[in-house]
Design a protein around this nucleic acid. Structure first.
Lengths: 119, 119
DNA sequence: TGACAACTTCGCGAAAATACGAATTATTGT
DNA sequence: ACAATAATTCGTATTTTCGCGAAGTTGTCA
């Protein structure tokens, strides 16, 4: 199968299995339009769950599930204030990620993604 | 439901539906350990499909499917060289994304994600 | 042209994600 | 204590993803 079995030049030391799983977990959590809507809604501070439901555009129970996914990925934290629970981004910089994706070739060319960030 | 209906201060002009879908598509494509392994393998230039299969750790047919997902998201492009097809990242900066995620609290604290990038 | 090698597409079963309403828990106010 | 509100968990149905082997496609070389 492999054409060249190179033992030299480890270059980037090949990420560990667990590292890949962890990264995938975070990306996967962000890989849903409703959850992305939630993340954007949290862009300017803490927001309560009921508002996030309207932002996500789905039922409260479904939204709660989405919030669980995001929380388990470590992207948000919750804090109770009276009867309502406020959520906030643990790392607002995820919005930078999203912003990068928006900077694509305007030419509808799905083949070439031009992410211009982290530069 | 909503407690305060504020019409003022649009702040960030609320991302369009299509924008959210697009962002989610990219993140979702990255939301799989095997595909992340592929992305990392492509970190130092073009690699042929058979090598990516071993990197991803799954059958050639499965790998091909993963490559289709990544290509459709615009994250990679393919180029034929003889019998083999080489893939490369359209935007290597996605690896910066992944790197950010690695910078988490070492304390196994899944609750708080400390992404330190794009700063 | 015929054999082979590299990939992809197809078909299909197993597993996971998604979404909703109903039921449940927690907190506030009367 | 009781009703009302906010949010989560549960049960379930539908859809999507995942992964493999089999079969098909494309290109190379003798």
């Amino acid at each position: 199968m492999q054409h060249v079995a190179k033992k030299s030049l480890p270059a980037s030391p090949k990420p560990a299995r667990s590292s890949l799983k962890r990264q995938a977990e975070v990306f996967k959590a962000l890989g849903h339009p409703g959850r992305m809507a939630i993340v954007h809604a949290l862009g300017h501070g803490a927001v309560c769950a009921c508002e996030l439901a309207t932002a996500a555009g789905c039922a409260a129970s479904t939204t709660s599930r989405h919030l669980t996914v995001l929380r388990h990925a470590g992207l948000i934290t919750d804090e109770r204030r009276g009867q309502q629970i406020f959520y906030r981004l643990t790392c607002p910089c995820v919005l930078s990620f999203a912003e990068c994706i928006n900077r694509v070739d305007a030419g509808e060319n799905v083949q070439s993604l031009q992410i211009a960030c982290c530069a």
